[in-house]
Design a protein around this nucleic acid. Structure first.
Lengths: 231, 231
DNA sequence: CAACTTCTTAACAATATCTTTATGCCTATT
DNA sequence: AATAGGCATAAAGATATTGTTAAGAAGTTG
């Protein structure tokens, strides 16, 4: 079920193409190849690869044009693979937005290592976890809550409380569980503080706190949050 | 006047050291040099450089140890500069967390181009070269800040602070995260210094510091910067 | 060295948050 | 219908956190 990392290889030489393709395939990547610049640009758009290997010497258009067009709309890591070992060309490629430049002939393992290094960079912006139900959205990564598109401000305890419930959406959390998780293991078994906080949260996120849509009270037991629509 | 980009050069050969140092200086970087691994690690912590150039062959300790220790607490871009052109060593270095590997002898302009490429990556998830929101514009490349078209002068620390927040615009950065990223891994957990700097920044960029439009306080957690309109 | 900027520390003011208290509502039970 | 237990709400005081200012230390530059 784990989708493989997609790499787009733009290279006109068929021998090089199949050689690199086989190498990457052996390393577990899903490789797509393009033999021309045009084809490469089109595939980049439709495939949305995780990384692009680009040969600068292409038959139909200048490799730099491909590079610049790609950088016009995408931040995908681009590794230049070129037979040219001249300073000027390397500098130009790197300054045009290429992430790395490797000269042919290259060590196969060096190529894959450089690919791993390049992928490390782009993984930083991994998409975050989100709770979503009806009009409520909690972005745990950004620590932001939206209600019908509007920012809602919660205090620290309120946020902790609501996230705790959201992380266990659909499940009842007993008063004591909540108290211990938020006020620490030695918290008093006094729900009053919890009720006050719940009231404050509800005032902020529920249209009618008396008939809540997000956080439900299980009398005598605890609170339960509406199921996450994201799963 | 303008906060320059700080580069730490860890290299035991004095000739190489002064050669690279002069080259980088000519390109506008503020270079600090360390002749041993220990010195390099200590300087990395106190200086918080924007990039590190590391020679793997050091007198007092293995270059890989230095690399691994650095990666233990920092995501700073690390470029390996080595005389060794063996596949195994390159792969090992890249997989240990190095961002690039350049073999001596190298073209001077290639080194600086690779440095620029590596610095581009370090801009968190904000891959754009400029931050823009309302009247505020930060050009990460030129390290210049404009407010409604006027140049704003920030001190070194103020600039680091604001760009760190801008690189993570929309996300809350906790006080400790910020302290460590700017004052190094051994920073005290004391936000006073942070509050003072934030006040100074706000006085310079906010119309009314009491109702900030760019940098928001998340009480008990940290600071968050307004979303980048550039994405 | 002197003038200047920047950084750090400390004291105090301004806010925001947390907790407690008091009160009323609802529901189930007698 | 009365009552008791559990829950919700509002408001006020207590506590904690953050903002502001200023002065001196440390560092830079001419």
């Amino acid at each position: 079920m784990n989708a493989r990392i997609r790499i787009l290889l733009i290279e006109d030489n068929k021998n090089t193409c199949s050689y690199i393709s086989a190498l990457l395939d052996k390393n577990g990547y899903a490789v797509t190849t393009a033999l021309t610049g045009r084809e490469g640009l089109s595939l980049a758009a439709s495939l949305c690869p995780n990384l692009i290997l680009l040969d600068l010497g292409l038959p139909d258009m200048d490799g730099f044009q491909v590079l610049e067009q790609l950088r016009g709309w995408s931040h995908v890591p681009i590794l230049i693979v070129s037979a040219c070992n001249e300073e000027q060309e390397k500098v130009a490629a790197l300054d045009s937005g290429a992430d790395d430049y490797i000269t042919k002939p290259f060590y196969p393992n060096e190529l894959t290592a450089r690919i791993r290094a390049a992928l490390r960079h782009s993984r930083g912006s991994a998409h975050s976890q989100v709770y979503k139900a009806l009009d409520l959205e909690i972005d745990f990564d950004k620590r932001i809550i939206h209600l019908a598109g509007r920012r809602v401000h919660l205090t620290q305890i309120e946020y902790q409380l609501l996230s705790l419930l959201a992380e266990n959406a659909g499940r009842v959390l007993t008063y004591n569980t909540i108290l211990r998780r938020i006020w620490g293991p030695y918290a008093e078994e006094n729900n009053q503080i919890l009720r006050v906080n719940m009231a404050n949260i509800r005032r902020k996120i529920e249209q009618n706190p008396a008939q809540p849509q997000y956080v439900f009270t299980e009398v005598g037991v605890g609170y339960r949050m509406r199921e996450n629509e994201n799963g």
